[in-house]
Amino acid sequence: MSLTNEIVKQKVEEKFGESVKAFTEADFGLLTFEVDRAKAIDLMQFLRDDETLRFNFLTTMCGVHYPDNEIERQFAVVYHMHNWLDNVRIRFKAFLNGENPEVESATRVFLTANWMEREGYDFYGINFIGHPDLRRILNMDEMVSFPMRKQFPLEDGGRTDKDDRYFGREPQNSNLN
């Protein structure tokens, strides 16, 4: 019997109850859900060590910034895991506080989390508690800002020639046509 999204969902809900929510398969059947930040790494360890789930591989993780959300949900860390035996992928997100984004480090579960978390710190200033060496990785050490945050626009905010309204479009493209 191969592993299905239903089994994963059931198992995870059984173990973590209220801490996991918002299950969806919107991304072409890829099971996606949210987890409380306090439980994120426990969940990862559970997913890896449970005998049925066997998510043996941390594919990738990255930060996301949502400045328009309420303060408790302004940052997210998105984890992608993969079970190579049953070939099932999942994605889960932990939302973090906008003032003080911090979450436990995943380095105790997967060695590969080391540089991924350093990248998350470098780009978003997310503090991964328990990381052995949380320094900047791609940007220079002297940098003071966290460049991937949305408050740092790539181009001069005063530029008007690239205003979407001149092209007769709405801010949202989804309703086009």
């Binding site: 919107a26 991304d27 890829l30 594919t59 990738t60 992608h80 493209n173």
Partner: peptide, 21 residues
């Protein structure tokens, strides 16, 4: 100016050095 849905996707291919996602 193309219609784009609101969604999240992950897709990976086998790159020269491994899973390129």
């Amino acid at each position: 100016e193309i219609p784009v849905p609101k969604a999240e996707v992950y897709h990976s291919v086998e790159g020269g050095n491994g899973e390129l996602g």
